[in-house]
């Protein structure tokens, strides 16, 4: 039985920022705080379950309209548009069940809300802010696209409770007309289908898989370990490009994304043409 999604996110947000309440005016489902990380003051963001949320379909930790626009606001307000200065790191702590599955959300264009949050993260990255996604629990589908997938470095715990996927298992089984057991078997044969974070790590999308002792109740030493990993990832992001090419250039990508890389190579060759 999996634990409630979002609790890990809250635990880690608190551990890294010593803050456990939202910023003034924000919904209870989005935690934002600035905290020291090495020589930087990083901005941390996390979406957490809020049983009293205004929108009923986000109360279990889903990313909905208010969550997306709050993330967009809190990310974009720290974007520094000046040139040639050291920019503040932004850390998305990711433990999101999914996007909100609600009629209110669709009516009010949740697609645009999600796009707006992703836009803010990508804008920060392109302006030279190191944007790090730290996956401490679930990272599903539209929830992850909204909150974390535009980061220039992605870290995830090496732990059985980490799930990164396009759709939760039961729904994926229904839609692809398979049993959950079939999906589990397929996951071992077809790595992109797998629900196991170690298989996800093989795809070359992660900067690093973090081995960790006590992800649910981190001891101070564990928190210090993760802070160090974040500092290293920030340094690595600062030394690299502001796009996502590292995901394509990784060893894992060269192994697991051969067809995609071939398509890219053909496109580059044919583009100038004649």
């Amino acid at each position: 039985m999996s634990k409630q999604v979002g609790l890990r996110g809250k635990t880690w947000f608190q551990a890294l920022t010593s803050v456990n309440s939202p910023m003034g005016g924000d919904p209870g489902s989005v935690l934002t705080a600035d905290a020291r990380l090495g020589e930087d003051t990083a901005r941390f963001l996390c979406v957490v379950p809020d049983p009293k949320a205004r929108f009923p379909c986000v109360r279990r930790g889903e990313v909905g309209l208010e969550e997306a626009y709050t993330l967009a606001t809190r990310v974009s307000e720290v974007i520094d548009h000046s040139e040639n200065v050291k920019k503040r790191p932004i850390v998305a702590i990711v433990d999101v069940k999914s996007q909100a599955y609600g009629r209110r959300e669709e009516t009010a264009a949740i697609f645009l809300a999600a796009a707006t949050a992703a836009d803010a993260y990508a804008s920060a990255r392109m302006k030279g802010h190191p944007v790090i996604a730290l996956i401490v629990g679930h990272a599903f589908s539209g929830g992850f696209l909204t909150h974390g997938y535009q980061a220039n470095r992605i870290l995830a715990f090496d732990d059985d409770d980490i799930v990164i996927h396009a759709m939760h298992k039961e729904a994926a089984a229904r839609i692809t007309l398979r049993s959950v057991a079939d999906l589990d078997r397929l996951g071992h044969e077809v790595p992109p289908m797998s629900y196991d974070v170690r298989d996800y790590a093989k795809l070359g999308l992660l900067h690093k898989l973090l081995h960790i002792q006590d992800p649910d109740t981190p001891a101070p030493a564990t928190v210090a370990q993760i802070q160090k990993e974040l500092i290293d990832a920030i340094a690595d992001a600062r030394a690299g490009s502001t796009d996502l090419r590292n995901r394509l250039e990784s060893k894992g990508a060269r192994e697991m994304r051969k067809a995609g890389l071939a398509a890219r190579a053909y496109m580059e060759k044919q583009w100038s043409g004649d």
Binding site: A122, S141, T176, P191, P192, L203, G260
Partner: peptide
Amino acid sequence: GVRLQEANLGLAAIAEVMASIFALRQ
């Protein structure tokens, strides 16, 4: 949206398509 038979590579591809649009859109 994501091709569920390629699940995580489809989701990653969408994130990358978005990143590429953000760059071109400038």
